[in-house]
């Protein structure tokens, strides 16, 4: 019994890594500009499409590099055409703008790259690994790609953490997150900071898009991951990078375990059809959090002088 549960847990954590990557993009932009970027899911789709189609004609590594250029250019275009014009507008107006960007990106991505389901081949063997065969009968079955994804995510997050904590620009980003106007007053240009956060979350979107795309194929439904990132954000706190990671892992693991453990109980005790728990588990968990801990697990404490 323990073996399958552990397998489910690991599989869930791997899905959680994906949620975390998408949530991370949200957090970066929200922290630095207070914009709730609904387009994050579409950015993941667009990035995945770029990588998938480019890698058909060139080596994967080159495709990824070009995709990075594309995402940075996209960040520049968004900053120049949209954000700069909407400075000092209400949050809801900026949110609506990102909604527009989201649908534009989906359509534009289809127009440029096509609307079929594409594959991203990471060049990792699809044969799963069997670990701890001595402990569990048959061993634990683990997907090699998932391990690679987890490692890549860990590297990305560590890199971001270092960038935020020690570099000059990272410090400026945190300053902007704290107080826009004061940051401006000491000479930190907001436009430049926004460009950087959008570019960085574009790059995070590439990572998320590649992992997701190699698993399930690159298709429209990827952009819906954004909706799964919402409960992750509520759990982890909108302003916390570690929160996004841990929130993602909790939701990923939680929904898979709920499906495996809770479904049979529902079937047995209440004679229900069971199943489908995976779809709502995250949102119910988020609701519970909204009721009891609205700032999330790691949301920034509001410093108030009394």
């Amino acid at each position: 019994m323990l073996g399958p549960i552990l397998e489910t847990l690991i599989g869930g954590l791997m899905t959680g890594v994906l949620y975390a990557l998408v949530a991370l993009g949200f957090v970066l932009i929200f922290k630095a500009s207070g914009v709730f970027n609904f387009a994050q899911g579409s950015m993941v789709l667009f990035a995945a499409l770029s990588v998938a189609r480019l890698s058909e004609v060139m080596p994967l590594i080159v495709a990824v590099l070009i995709a990075i250029v594309i995402m940075v250019a996209l960040a520049y275009a968004i900053e120049f055409l949209v954000l700069r014009r909407l400075v000092n507008q209400e949050g809801i107006i900026l949110f609506m703008a990102t909604l527009g960007i989201a649908y534009f990106l989906e359509g534009f991505g289809e127009a440029v790259w096509g609307s079929d389901i594409y594959k991203i081949n990471l060049g990792i063997s699809k044969n799963p690994l069997f670990l701890f065969e001595g402990i569990f009968p048959g061993g634990l079955l683990i997907d090699r790609e998932e391990i690679a994804a987890a490692v890549a995510c860990a590297i990305l997050v560590a890199g971001l953490a270092i960038f935020f904590q020690v570099t000059r620009v990272g410090r400026a980003l945190r300053a902007v997150a704290d107080d826009h106007q004061a940051a401006q007053s000491v000479g930190i240009p907001l436009n430049y900071i926004w460009l950087i956060v959008w570019a960085v979350s574009g790059i995070v979107a590439i990572a998320a898009g590649m992992v997701w795309g190699s698993k399930l194929g690159v298709q429209f439904s990827i952009s819906l991951v954004a909706l799964k990132a919402l409960p992750v954000l509520i759990l982890g706190g909108f302003t916390s990078i570690p929160g996004a990671i841990i929130g993602g892992l909790i939701i990923g693991a939680g929904e898979k375990l709920a499906e495996v453990l809770l479904s049979p109980m529902l079937v047995k005790w209440f004679d229900l059809a069971g199943g489908g728990i995976e779809n709502w588990f995250a949102y119910v968990l988020a609701l519970v959090f909204l009721l009891f801990r609205p700032q999330g697990l790691f949301g920034e404490r509001i410093i108030e002088r009394i």
Partner: peptide, 19 residues
């Protein structure tokens, strides 16, 4: 004053050197 509340005092000072 408008100090960056979540940064340390020294980090606050360093943001002033951004330009």
């Amino acid at each position: 004053r408008r100090c960056f509340a979540h940064l340390t005092v020294e980090e606050n000072l360093l943001t002033g050197a951004f330009t």
